[in-house]
Design a protein around this nucleic acid. Sequence first.
DNA 1: TTCTCAAATGTTACGGTATAACAAAGTGAT
DNA 2: ATCACTTTGTTATACCGTAACATTTGAGAA
Lengths: 144, 144
Amino acid sequence: MEIACFIEAADRHCQQQGVKLTALRRQVLELVLSYPGVVKAYQVLADLQKQRGIAAPPTVYRALDFLVAAGLLHKVDALNGYIVCHHVGCSHEGLILVCGDCGQVEELDATPVLDVLRQQAGGAGFAISQQNLMLTGRCKECRT
Amino acid sequence: MEIACFIEAADRHCQQQGVKLTALRRQVLELVLSYPGVVKAYQVLADLQKQRGIAAPPTVYRALDFLVAAGLLHKVDALNGYIVCHHVGCSHEGLILVCGDCGQVEELDATPVLDVLRQQAGGAGFAISQQNLMLTGRCKECRT
DNA sequence: TTCTCAAATGTTACGGTATAACAAAGTGAT
DNA sequence: ATCACTTTGTTATACCGTAACATTTGAGAA
């Protein structure tokens, strides 16, 4: 059970940061983890409703926001979705590749390329903040 | 009047591509141009309604989609907004810097960095599609 | 010209995404 | 126990985007 392992790591991660991974937040995290790729807020909401009877949008959005802020999830703006961060505790700027066909996600280290970007942007007087790079394309399987 | 000049260039660009910059599309483009930075679809819709009395969402979304497809606008997913492309006719993958404070946008050439990204992603079997890079940070003025 | 077809636009209605605002319940410190 | 604070519940609503079908427009063929 890989999920349990991730949750444990997430727990430690939150403790280190001095924030609380409450029961609700843990539950939402588990739901996101149960999907192989990108998940939408309202899917999570539906799952949550199955598990606890009722739940409203703010409940799930707040939990998702927390998890993103804690670095446990990433938001995929282009798809209005969320994915699990596979580099919790690591360097922590991700290069996130989303397959437009199957929705699968791959996450690489973005530090080298962000260094280059920071330099290029700096030339224009622009200071890039900490963030992930999100790119779409086609994965190995879908490319065949 | 810089707008007129841009519209002219856009016109030529569309003719070259064999697509039509109709009156409506031109009007929408002008409205987007009238803003300094990111514009939202419903802002454009409101402006359009002021100018021609009535207009419904599909009208403006279709025009915006066309303009994005034609390479005259970029969509800023993170903000649900649109910006003018300042590199019409150029290489044409943009590195778009959005200032989180003032909303101003700067657009650089993304080809060099995307080359690097394509190589890195290729190592993971991932084929990145044509697209823009969108980064947030703080611009020169807001940094002082 | 007139017809025809395809592209563009108009119109209605709806579904998906997200947040404001306030109430209630939990948590921890003194 | 009570106070301050964080988290969660609840209601309502605002914002974003598109499906589906009707109508108009324009370019080319008969």
